[in-house]
Write a protein that binds this DNA or RNA. Structure first.
Lengths: 204, 204, 204, 204
DNA sequence: AATGAATGAGGCTTCATTCAT
DNA sequence: AATGAATGAAGCCTCATTCAT
């Protein structure tokens, strides 16, 4: 049906010249996506904005989908990398402290490129594919954090708890970004989220 | 290039005898969407499956977007209607009781046509429009329910609380539908959600 | 690998209007093929010459290959039809007489549209496909003619004889058309072919 | 649009040390042609398989056509060379003996690389050029053989006889290769061809 | 001489939409 | 009101060929 043939891998940029080309293409993709939307994203337009011939684009990306996939991956990596910076030295903290830190990390991650993040989630057809990208990785982190403190944990089902927490954090941060940006600036969201999830997780 | 013509359905499909035709078209749209995905949704194909000429389709829907818009609206209405059935006679209940009932209502609503729901959320190039559809309406309900019990409420900011609760319910139900359907069958999700949100809302 | 997906059957022209369109398209295809060659045969060019939009072309022909296939079939049918006209009332003739008549029939058939015939055989990639078209049919005719006179026949293996005769006739007529057209006008080819094949077939 | 540049290989590939490169390229061309077909034959792919940069390919072959032309020529030369080995010491033989030997020679020649032979004939957009390749050369041989025995010859027109014989041999061997390979193994084709052409050529 | 990144004309095809009947 | 043939802008992508290094 839909998820195209695994996107024939193309030439990996080896020379530095081609690395520049690839960067320009991804950058142009992001720009058009955020400024003009998915409808306007055509391979020719990307190439044009990247200052590259359409042929070059297809040397590195087998099709339009691959373009978006690569961009999403890059974005996800940036998010994860930033998040990790916020998650160091948490070994001996309590659950509320850890939670707050994780929420802070998620907030930071979502601040990487909000416009792009939104477009990627709202306008891309096979969003299922890419949601996995930024998911899983954080779920694992969360899982191990909570597992280490299972004695303080109220929910017996660890996996379920991870699901609840992870989705809630993501949904509320994303929702706030779109509809209530003021909650981000004032720190209210961070506060409420911490409260809500702490109350949920910790034995009363 | 040229910014599309206003696109939003100017004229609601006439509600006369031709109602049958309109139904057939929307039904065909839903079928193709759920079975074949947005990529395969072409106006000609819709018309063919609806057993209607392409010309007739355009008599009732000014363009493709209007087709999807109407379908989304229909779907949202069905969801809201079903939800309301679950929300009667709650005037003298406590917050946890109300919450559980609201969650049950939301679960029922999401069970209306999960496949369609998913496709509508994942594959449609969100034209800003459709999210509003199933949102707002429930938020109002929630707002009034909580306002009536503001004395039992821990969060001072009512609007913020509504936001938190509404998004959390939606995100977790949707997430469970996609990734953990077992949580819906066992009632675990309902239980955990009630716990989490009660703990958040009620004064300790 | 090559032989494309069975060329999704498209709309069969039902109204007379569309019949005209299909004719125009095939005619344009033949014209471009004979005058400009296969290299110049592009779907857009065909549509343009046919005075038809490219969209219309694709309503009746799923791809470029189908265009050529249809044209070849049409051509083959014309050839067979003409050949049959030359092959009536041969029931009580001797082998040489029958042979000469068959050769005459083949000559007539090849005179239908020699230019097109040549292009179809020389320039079309998957010529194997279409050679079958004008073959088989004649082989059957030949087979039955010879079977009826098996007592006068020298070769014991009938199928082999049919193969020898059919291919020889085709090759020489085609070869003469391309390289020695004078042999066709003077009747020399007909004469020599009859001699050669009679000598081969008839018991000495 | 603009009629191609002269296209025929201006410079024969230098016959020095770079002979190895040229061989690799032609070999790769043949391999792709026989295994994947003309559709898959791209200059980049040839270069890759030859283990040579695309730039190098164009150093030895001015364009794609030249590549095929050279390959066809090579193939034709191999065929002719092999045929000649079968045609020595025939000076004092009778026509049937000579004929059989010529047929044997042709059979041997066609066995050189049947797959390539077929592809070259079926899938290459005959640019008029290549047919001549394997033709002419044999016709001359045949012409001289028959001229030496013109007293035993029935047909008065020598050139016509050569045409008849040469085309018949070629068509039947090729046809058998494609559609009746068993005739080649059993020797039946050789036998029948000798019979048919002897009967045609020799005074009764 | 070799490399391989880059080019870009142009081919094939789709599909939302129009309009003559 | 309905039909469905026709439209054509525009998208995706290939591949022979060039050229800077």
């Amino acid at each position: 049906m839909s998820p195209k043939p695994p996107a024939t891998p193309r030439k990996q940029p080896k020379q530095e010249r081609s690395q520049v080309t690839v960067e320009a293409i991804l950058s142009a993709t992001a720009h058009i996506l955020t400024e003009n939307g998915y409808n306007q994203l055509t391979t020719n337009r990307v190439a044009e904005r990247a200052g590259v011939s359409i042929g070059s684009l297809y040397q590195y990306f087998p099709n339009k989908e691959a373009l978006i996939f690569a961009l999403a991956e890059q974005h996800a990596n940036e998010m994860v990398q930033l998040a990790k910076q916020h998650l160091e030295g948490l070994s001996d903290r309590t659950i509320p402290e850890v939670l707050r830190q994780i929420i802070k990390a998620a907030l930071a991650a979502h601040a990487v490129n909000p416009k792009l993040h939104r477009v990627l989630h709202e306008q891309i057809p096979h969003s299922e594919v890419m949601k996995r990208l930024d998911q899983a990785k954080i779920e694992n982190l969360l899982q191990s954090f909570l597992a280490q403190r299972s004695d303080q944990l109220r929910p017996k089902n660890l996996e379920l708890a991870v699901f609840m927490v992870e989705r809630t954090i993501r949904a509320l941060i994303y929702g706030a970004m779109i509809d209530h940006p003021e909650l981000l600036k004032t720190g209210e969201l961070e506060q409420e989220l911490t409260l809500m999830l702490s109350a949920y997780l910790v034995k009363s």
